[in-house]
């Protein structure tokens, strides 16, 4: 199988690492060679963060480069457009349609780009959800990342029951049911 490349991008502190861990554990179940690459340290303090996931028969480099990504999972709009050139021509974007202003925007040094979703749609298929709003409706704002993952799952080649069992194995025991519920909500949004 040709190597598949997934990028998860977002803002430090949003929980991209948990998402990539679930994905990594899932891919293992299918017997693929898998490599994940993460960012720790200073960049995690509210900076732009990227996680790479690659799997296939044999994976060498752990990073996804320009023009390589099959799926770009973006936890925030500006981060989606920042990394869109990493997608293949037929790559898809799974977007959490929310805006988090970076500090240069907050202090008025730059403007937050307008019409990002329209811009993204010009080049790629975009599946979007406002996962933060949906998570609040579920009663816990922190599970928004599982909603995005659920939406992404609709466009990845793994069975829903495998997703659920990996979520069960990866998240803290007390939060299993809520996380599964969030995942399924996102999955259904992909219908």
């Amino acid at each position: 199988m040709e190597t598949k490349n997934i990028m998860i991008v977002g803002v430090g502190g949003q929980g991209t690492l948990l998402t990539s861990r679930i994905l990594g554990n899932l891919i293992r179940k299918y017997g693929y060679d898998v490599k994940l690459s993460e960012v720790h340290g200073m960049a995690q303090r509210g900076g732009s963060v990227v996680t790479f996931v690659r799997y296939g028969d044999k994976v060498y480099e752990p990073i996804v480069e320009e023009g390589m990504a099959d799926v770009l999972i973006a936890f925030e709009r500006l981060e989606a457009i920042r990394y869109q050139d990493f997608l293949k021509d037929d790559g898809v974007i799974v977007l959490n349609d929310v805006r988090i202003d970076p500090m240069p925007v907050v202090i008025g040094a730059c403007e937050y780009p307008k019409d990002i979703v329209d811009e993204l749609k010009k080049g790629h298929t975009v599946y979007s959800v406002n996962a933060n709003e949906e998570a609040i409706k579920l009663g816990n704002s922190r599970v928004f990342n599982l909603i995005i993952l659920g939406l992404a799952a609709k466009h990845l080649d793994f069975k829903v029951e495998d997703w659920l069992s990996v979520i069960e194995e990866t998240v803290p025991p007390k939060t299993i049911e809520l996380n599964k519920k969030a995942f399924l909500l996102g999955y259904e949004k992909g219908e």
Binding site: L78, V105, E111
Partner: peptide, 18 residues
């Protein structure tokens, strides 16, 4: 040949205090 990143003027997102 490798695909290039297009130049953009997007706002940077530097790390910040929490």
């Amino acid at each position: 040949a490798v695909p290039a990143i297009k130049q953009n003027n997007l706002p940077m997102r530097p790390p910040i205090l929490c």
